[in-house]
């Protein structure tokens, strides 16, 4: 994927120089290993700052919300699906965008690597299908496929579903992926076990709201946890209030979440936030045969009524 750089810069330079867009949104090299910084480029001569590697996990669609100018945006599979969702939800117009599609083979899970490396990580290098991590005088090598973000391992939309330019030939999509094994395991627990499972899952939450703020779906002017008239949720570290935040946020993402994994990547405490959103994503697939962000024309299941909608929960 490292070879994409030249092509990305070339396209960015072209669309900026031709005046097709006013800014290009992409990533620039981070100051630490395994993280890059979302950035914007205004001048064609600055495109060399743009980079692409396995550490571009943050979903850039988050940076499009309500922008008024014409924008070039770099989009991997999941970003492109969120762009579609954004267009459907009137957060950006298709005509404003030049989408630079990037076929993606998965992003590195920085939490996973850090948790298996005792010293401070100083350097991370990709070497074929391996990743070499060094720091504090030790070196560790992993197979790339073992340290990808969990959502990338089970991704079935690696290629952008909407784009104006494509930086490389599409990559092969993963087939026969067992997407929901972890969710099914939780579904099989008893109610008491489930409650305990989520208590543990969310125990370390510090309510920094990184999961919410990094999410392209969470663009409300005032989130329900912030509102004070009325105040829906307490603001302290009370575990019930923390759970309420996480569960309700997940509900608000139903039928919209593309499982891009940004929430999990952003969490400073390494909480597996996707355990909540993925359940709703699974339900939407099983009940409505719906995957978010695939088609600009189709209305999302929660905004439409279909006589064939399942109604087993009603009596």
């Amino acid at each position: 994927m490292l070879s994409y750089n030249e092509k990305i810069r070339h396209i960015a330079k072209k669309i900026l120089a031709e005046g097709k867009v006013e800014i290009v949104i992409g990533y620039r090299r981070g100051t630490l290993p395994m993280i890059n910084e979302p950035c914007f480029i205004k001048h064609p001569e600055d495109v060399t700052r743009l980079i692409w590697d396995r550490h571009c996990g943050i979903n850039l669609t988050n940076y499009l919300t309500q922008r008024k100018e014409r924008i070039g945006i770099i989009a991997k599979g999941c970003d492109s699906r969120n762009i579609i969702t954004h267009i459907i939800e009137n957060k950006i117009k298709r005509e404003q965008l030049v989408i630079i599609g990037v076929p993606c083979k998965g992003m590195i899970d920085r939490h996973k690597i850090a948790s298996q490396f005792e010293e401070e990580i100083q350097k991370v290098k990709e070497d074929g299908d391996k990743i070499v991590v060094t720091g504090g005088g030790i070196e560790k090598i992993w197979k790339l496929s073992d340290v990808l973000q969990e959502n990338c391992i089970i991704c079935t939309h690696r290629n952008p579903v909407i784009y104006d330019e494509l930086v490389a030939e599409p990559v092969a999509e993963q087939k026969d992926v067992n997407r929901y094994e972890d969710i099914r395991r939780i579904e099989r627990l008893s109610p008491a076990e489930k409650a305990e499972f989520f208590d543990d899952l969310l125990a370390s939450c510090i309510r920094c709201y990184a999961c919410r703020n990094v999410c392209p779906l969470c663009y409300c002017d005032t989130c329900f946890v912030d509102g004070s008239q009325p105040q829906w949720v307490g603001k302290s570290q009370d575990p019930t209030d923390i759970r309420t935040f996480h569960f309700l946020r997940a509900f608000h993402c139903a039928g919209r979440c593309t499982d891009c994994g940004s929430c999990e990547r952003a969490c400073p405490m390494g909480i597996k936030v996707r355990t909540l959103t993925k359940k709703l994503e699974k339900d939407c697939l099983e009940l409505f045969n719906w995957e978010a962000g695939i088609d600009l024309e189709q209305r999302p299941p929660l905004t439409t009524y279909n006589p064939n909608d399942p109604d087993d929960t009603f009596r």
Binding site: I186, P191, E193, K194, E196, F197, F247, T313, R315
Partner: peptide, 16 residues
């Protein structure tokens, strides 16, 4: 709701 650990039967939906 059941996924969160709320027992089946505690929440009902009905069209009347």
């Amino acid at each position: 709701m059941e996924y969160m650990g709320i027992e089946p039967g505690r929440i009902h939906f009905s069209w009347i």
